[in-house]
Amino acid sequence: MYNIFYLMTSKPAVIIEIINYIIFSIAWCKLCEKANVRNQWLAFTPFLQIIVFLNIIDRSGWYGLLLMIPIVNIVLMIVWFTEFYNSFNIKKLWIVLSIVIYPIGCIYMLYMAYSEKIDYIGGSSYRY
C-alpha cells in the first residue's frame, strides 16, 4: 500500500496530474463557451466543476449534493453524462463507449471541446 501512495505522490506523478488538471479545465471552459454558460471560471476550480457540468445539462448546482449519496451517485453520473453527450448531439455508440471506457471518455471530451463539428444543441437556463 505504501508503494502505491509513493507512486501517486512522486514528483513526476504530481506534475502529470497538474498538467492533466489544466488541460481538462481548459476543455471544460471551452465546452462552457460552446454552451454559453455563465461563470466559465468555475471550470478551473476543482469541486465547482460539478456546477459547470450541471449547468451545461440544465440542472441547478444544488443537484451536486446528490453525489454524496452512495450508489445514487453512480447512477446519477451515468444519467447525467448521457444527458451531457445528448446535449452536444453525440451518437449513441460514442456515448456508451465514453461512459463504459474511461480513457475513451477523456479523449472524446477533448475532441468535443476543440472540434468545430460539435455544437451545443441543448437548452440551458444558465446562459448569459
Rank of each mutant, 00 (worst) to 15 (best):
I15R: 12
T82Q: 08
S98I: 11
V100T: 13
S60G: 03
I71G: 08
L76S: 05
F88G: 04
I90G: 04
K92D: 07
N36E: 07
G61D: 01
V75H: 09
N39F: 14
K30Y: 09
K11Q: 14
K30G: 04
I107R: 11
A113F: 06
L65N: 03
M8T: 12
L31M: 11
L97V: 05
M112V: 03
D119W: 01
A113E: 06
M109A: 09
F84N: 08
P46R: 13
I118H: 00
P46C: 03
V52P: 02
I18C: 13
L54P: 03
M8K: 15
Y6S: 12
L65I: 05
E83Q: 12
N55S: 01
V75L: 11
Y21S: 10
F84P: 12
N20R: 07
M8I: 14
S25N: 07
L66A: 06
I23F: 00
V100H: 12
F24V: 05
E33M: 03
L42F: 07
S60T: 04
I57T: 02
G122C: 04
S25Y: 07
L54T: 00
Y114C: 08
I118T: 02
M112K: 06
T9K: 13
W80T: 02
I19V: 15
Q40G: 08
E116P: 02
G122W: 05
S125G: 03
M1W: 12
L48I: 00
N55R: 11
I107Q: 14
I16T: 12
Y21D: 10
L54S: 01
T45Q: 09
L97W: 04
N36S: 09
C106F: 13
T45V: 10
I69K: 06
I99S: 08
R59E: 05
S60K: 05
E17K: 15
I18K: 12
N89C: 10
A27S: 12
K30D: 01
F47A: 02
F84S: 09
D119V: 01
V79D: 11
I22G: 06
I57K: 06
Y128F: 00
